[in-house]
Simulated scan of single mutants.
Amino acid sequence: MPPKTTPAWILSEQKGIDSLQLVQENPIPEVGDNDVLVKIHAASLNYRDIVVAKGEPALPFFRPGVIPGSDGAGIVEAVGANVNGFQVGDRVCTHLTSGLPANQPTTMVDICQSGLGHNYDGTLAAYAVLHETALVPMPANLDFFQASTLTCSGLTAWNALFGIDSLKPKKGDWVLVQGTGGVSIAALQFALASGATIIATTSSNAKADRLKLLGAHHVLNYREDANWGQTAKNLTPNGHGVNIVLDVGGLSTLTQSLKAIRVDGLIALAGMLGSAPDGTPAPTLMDCLSNSCTVRGFLLGTRDQYREMNKFIVEKGIEPVVDERVFDFVETKQAYELLQEQRHFSKVGIRI
């Protein structure tokens, strides 16, 4: 018989990390006709989880008492009467949104209204009842920690690189990734597996060494080189510029991304955390015209893209990167703190 309660973290209010509360016997909802009961084995965190905990206005529609977390992987324990795609024993990982068609792009409204760990109960629990549309099969070559990184970071990186078929990376292309967060590390791995030459940025010499170990061909320290976008362009053959820039900093990095990109290149705009440097005007849409490039804004990816990504991961033998410190379930607040202080590398994992 499935359990009736589960250990779970809940957010009763939005006053930061201290709003997280561990409940040992949180009731498990009944499994509906289109629901799946999953025993969660591992979860990972995104900066979005901190934004939700703080109650920042970018993500409204918060439901008090929600179980936070969107990223997770586990084993199916029970399925509803109308579920056809999963059966007991399947290894699965979560998709952030619930109830969307498999080919429908995600909007900010979708994330707020149907996002796991926000308006729907998420993955920071030993057991979760999820709509079947919030799940995909796990890549067979991954463990639960690795698979738990795919929900947001992995899928965002995949959509950034492969979302436009005619511009997806290939052998001979150059790709620029920024920083050492989960999206950038996943993009590095995907682009490298496609045969591209990788330029990565960081502010840390220690992290630069790790980027090189992962296969980055060039690493630029953006604190030591304020004009790193031009430096990246100069590294490319004949100084033509990179084919794809994964921009995760928004206004704080977009000016340099525009300097790095080649004519007809793609800037995949996946982040909005920063502000323009002091004394620097914020880029506008007209900068796309003067640089003759495509700037594409997007959020996450579809379930169809998720399945394509997982197939690629298996075919290429890619193993997603989790920070060397993995937290136990009772240490979830410390995991949030590590992420908030940006002391992590790639993804912060939680053992459940």
Rank of each mutant, 00 (worst) to 15 (best):
Y306I: 02
R307Q: 11
D18Q: 15
D33A: 10
L273T: 14
N243V: 02
E331F: 01
T280E: 15
L142Q: 14
L338G: 01
A140F: 04
E331Y: 06
G181P: 03
D33Q: 12
G154L: 12
T133A: 06
R210V: 14
E315Q: 15
G65S: 09
S148E: 08
N291C: 15
G99Y: 06
K39C: 01
Y336R: 12
T197M: 00
D287R: 03
H118T: 14
T231V: 06
G349S: 13
K39F: 00
L192C: 00
E56W: 10
N26R: 12
K39M: 10
K212T: 13
L59C: 06
D328A: 13
K4D: 13
N243I: 07
T156Y: 11
A102F: 14
H344E: 12
T201I: 10
F86W: 03
G115S: 13
L211K: 02
P29T: 07
F329P: 06
A216M: 07
T253L: 09
A8L: 11
D35F: 06
Q189L: 15
L100K: 14
L96C: 04
G74N: 10
G117E: 10
L20R: 09
L235T: 13
E25K: 14
A58V: 15
G274R: 13
S204H: 03
D287P: 05
V348F: 07
A270R: 01
A102M: 07
L100I: 00
S194F: 10
L11Y: 09
P29I: 07
S70G: 04
I111T: 13
Q87P: 05
